[in-house]
């Protein structure tokens, strides 16, 4: 065998490994994001996403619009018949609501629980969820997007993936989404990261 074969093989191997490492680094954001959830959080932190313009309706039929510039908010996604995850999200919002009250933040709707289950979450269902978690309507609203299209663009912008759990419920990202003063999705937290999530909501 010629030694040129060795050289070409070494060259091909080096090119392939470099390209492979490049693709791997790019796709993991420099080894920091191996899952879609961590990638979504990094992407949002790096480049806040403007919200699409959508209309939401709460249990009393009152309409709320997003984006709502000038008012920082926290948004989570739930379905009210959820036995597990959404209850922990509800508990987080309840604690954040309490914290806002203690800190003397003037009442304003800053917490939004958005249902992605229009088939089951009618007004009474939304109200039951709100009451079960002690939602104070001056701070926290439980809402449903007015149209299927609004729901879809909202989930897409937030990067929330909802899949059926095979038992009539859903599995979905459990996270608190912070909307900044400019009306952009700017940070995503775990449900138990209350301290970090509440920062920037005051005043």
């Amino acid at each position: 065998m010629s030694s040129s074969g060795t050289g070409r093989t070494a060259l091909a191997t080096a090119v392939v490994l470099l390209a492979g490492a490049g693709a791997f680094l790019a796709e993991t954001e420099g080894l920091r994001a191996f899952t879609s959830e961590s990638a979504r959080r990094l992407a949002v932190a790096r480049a806040p996403r403007p919200l699409p313009s959508v209309v939401l309706r709460d249990d009393r039929g009152e309409r709320l619009r997003l984006p709502n510039p000038g008012r920082p908010m926290l948004v989570d996604f739930v379905y009210t018949s959820c036995p597990t995850l959404c209850s922990s999200l509800g508990a987080s919002f309840a604690r954040i609501q309490e914290r806002l009250g203690e800190a003397g933040v003037p009442p304003a709707v800053q917490l939004l629980s958005v249902s992605f289950d229009p088939a089951r979450d009618d007004a009474p269902a939304l109200r039951a969820y709100a009451e079960a978690h002690g939602a104070d309507p001056t701070r926290w609203r439980v809402v449903l997007p007015e149209s299927e299209a609004d729901l879809r663009t909202l989930l897409e912008t937030f990067g929330v993936v909802v899949i059926p759990d095979g038992e009539g419920g859903f599995v979905h990202n459990a996270a608190l989404h912070r909307i900044d003063r400019e009306g952009r999705l700017a940070a995503i937290f775990d449900p138990d990261e209350i301290e970090r999530a509440v920062e920037g909501l005051g005043g």
Partner: peptide, 22 residues
């Protein structure tokens, strides 16, 4: 000549498979 001893091909396969394990 680009794949003596199978080294280049293995590197390519390893790079592709590693990517698809994410």
């Amino acid at each position: 000549p680009w794949n003596r001893g199978g080294v280049g091909g293995l590197a390519l396969a390893a790079a592709i498979l590693a990517f698809w394990m994410l």
